[in-house]
Simulated assay, not measured.
Amino acid sequence: MSDERVTKRAAILSAATELFVEHGYAGASLRDIGRVADADASLVIHYFGSKEGLFLAAMRSVEGEHPLLDGPLDGLGERYIRFVLESGPSVRAGFLAVLRAGQTAKLSARMRELHETNFVEPLESRLTGADVELRARLAAALVGGLLYSFWIVGDEYLLAADHEAVIRRYGRLLQDLVDY
């Protein structure tokens, strides 16, 4: 692919990520994405095949590193909570886009698949002992609840709380599920 095509594709992906986070899957039109990227909407289809393909590419572009697979299980709770709270805009953008896209029936199955492959399965593969699948799913729900409180509800008390105390205490809750 030529440099110009790579640049245009990257501009479309960037615009799509921004608009999907801001407006959700249903609220971000291909025409709007093309306008923000300074590209014809037909190029969006050319590069990504469909709006769904573009959305999934946008979500992959904000995934980043995956601390569930790195390091020892001991201390994973705090490491993971620190990662989601300090990773910058990528985790927040991905969480918000997935949450807003989940409202669209067409993507709900794909969102469940991303949830499985990006959180549940990686954690489940590392756990030992009883109720591994249940513990991995409870861990996903626990982390999702924290992100919801921060980024959807905007809980002012939590947002103003001592950052290290939140990481330490919430990390301990997550660690309890890992160590059970």
Rank of each mutant, 00 (worst) to 15 (best):
G49Y: 11
G171D: 04
Q175A: 10
A161G: 04
E164Y: 01
D40M: 00
D155P: 10
A141H: 02
E52R: 13
L138E: 08
A26R: 10
R172Y: 07
V36W: 06
R112Y: 06
M59V: 12
T7Q: 13
L114F: 08
E164C: 02
D179Q: 12
R135P: 03
N118Y: 08
L173A: 15
S50R: 04
L54H: 13
H46T: 14
S61E: 11
G64R: 01
F48P: 11
A10N: 11
G144M: 05
G24N: 05
I33E: 02
M1V: 09
F55H: 03
V91I: 13
G129L: 09
E113G: 05
S61W: 07
Y170N: 03
T17Q: 12
V98N: 00
A101D: 00
A139S: 15
P67R: 04
G64Q: 01
L142V: 09
R35V: 10
R5I: 10
S2R: 14
A10R: 13
L114N: 01
G102E: 01
H115N: 04
P72V: 05
H115K: 06
L134N: 01
L96M: 14
V120I: 14
A161Q: 15
A109W: 02
A57C: 06
P89D: 14
Y80H: 13
E116D: 12
F48N: 13
A15M: 08
E78I: 01
A97G: 14
Y148K: 05
G171A: 09
D176A: 15
L147G: 12
H23K: 14
K8Q: 14
G53I: 07
P122G: 13
F95S: 03
G34I: 06
G64I: 01
L173R: 11
L85V: 09
L76V: 09
G34Q: 07
L68C: 09
M1K: 06
E121H: 04
L85P: 02
W151V: 02
L147F: 03
S149C: 08
H23Y: 08
E65R: 12
G77P: 04
K106P: 00
G64K: 02
F20E: 03
N118D: 07
A11Y: 00
L54A: 14
G49F: 12
N118C: 09
L30C: 11
G71H: 06
E113Q: 12
D40C: 04
S108W: 07
E124V: 00
Y47Q: 09
Y25P: 01
E156W: 02
A136F: 02
L30Y: 00
S61G: 10
V178M: 04
L142R: 07
V132Y: 02
G154N: 07
T128R: 13
E116N: 07
Q175H: 08
H66M: 11
A39R: 01
A97F: 11
G94C: 08
R112C: 08
P122E: 12
A28N: 09
I33G: 03
D40L: 01
K8F: 00
L56M: 15
L147I: 06
A165L: 15
I152Q: 11
A39M: 03
Y80P: 02
M111Q: 02
R92E: 15
P72C: 03
I152N: 03
L68Y: 09
T17P: 03
A161V: 06
I12D: 10
R135S: 07
K8S: 12
L174A: 10
V21A: 14
P122C: 14
L73D: 06
A28P: 08
S29V: 08
A11S: 12
Y157K: 13
D40V: 04
